[in-house]
């Protein structure tokens, strides 16, 4: 076990899968996420590889993959910091087709998560609270608010019309 820090294990379930190289840290309480992230950062996990989501239709998994450049003993490991958000009870958003999901941002802990979180916001409609700049990054304005990477996104290629200035 590479994670035996008590601050983390009391609020998160740690599961290690050596064969597939994943150390899964499942944070059950959304308010404790930032504290867990801070104690991981103190341990020496200093950069974020990826921020991604998996849409399981009734719930959304948001995960931060983190690793270390400075500590030799952690270089070979990738931690998967994960929280689940229940999406079945969300009310529809009048501005957008599907409602946004609120999750705390970890940019203050890992600066390298900034562009990844922007992308996750644009693709999945996740509102990272505390993120400095949540502008769309990859898609054109036509798709903002449709959250295309969610599983309920549908698209009809033949009927698509685009305006040229």
């Amino acid at each position: 076990m590479i994670i035996n820090n008590e601050d983390i294990t009391k609020t998160a379930q740690v599961k290690e899968d050596e064969k597939r190289g994943i150390v899964d840290i499942f944070v059950t309480d959304i308010n404790a996420l930032k504290d867990v992230a801070l104690s991981l950062s103190k341990m020496g996990f200093d950069h974020c590889l990826s921020v991604t989501c998996v849409d399981y239709r009734s719930r959304m998994s948001v995960m931060w993959h983190i690793s270390s450049y400075s500590k030799d003993e952690y270089k070979g490991h990738v931690l998967q910091l994960r929280i689940d958000v229940d999406t079945s009870k969300l009310t529809p958003d009048p501005n957008y087709r599907a409602p946004m999901i609120n999750v705390p941002s970890l940019v203050e802990v890992w600066k390298s998560a900034e562009f990844n979180e922007r992308e996750a916001h644009e693709m999945f409609g996740i509102n990272f609270q505390g993120h400095p700049d949540l502008r769309p990054i990859l898609l054109s304005e036509d798709f903002y608010g449709k959250w295309p990477m969610r599983k309920d996104f549908t698209f009809d290629k033949s009927g698509a019309k685009y305006e040229f200035e």
Partner: peptide, 10 residues
Amino acid sequence: MNLNEKVYDI
């Protein structure tokens, strides 16, 4: 948490 909070004006 306000789930319908609009964060960004297109």
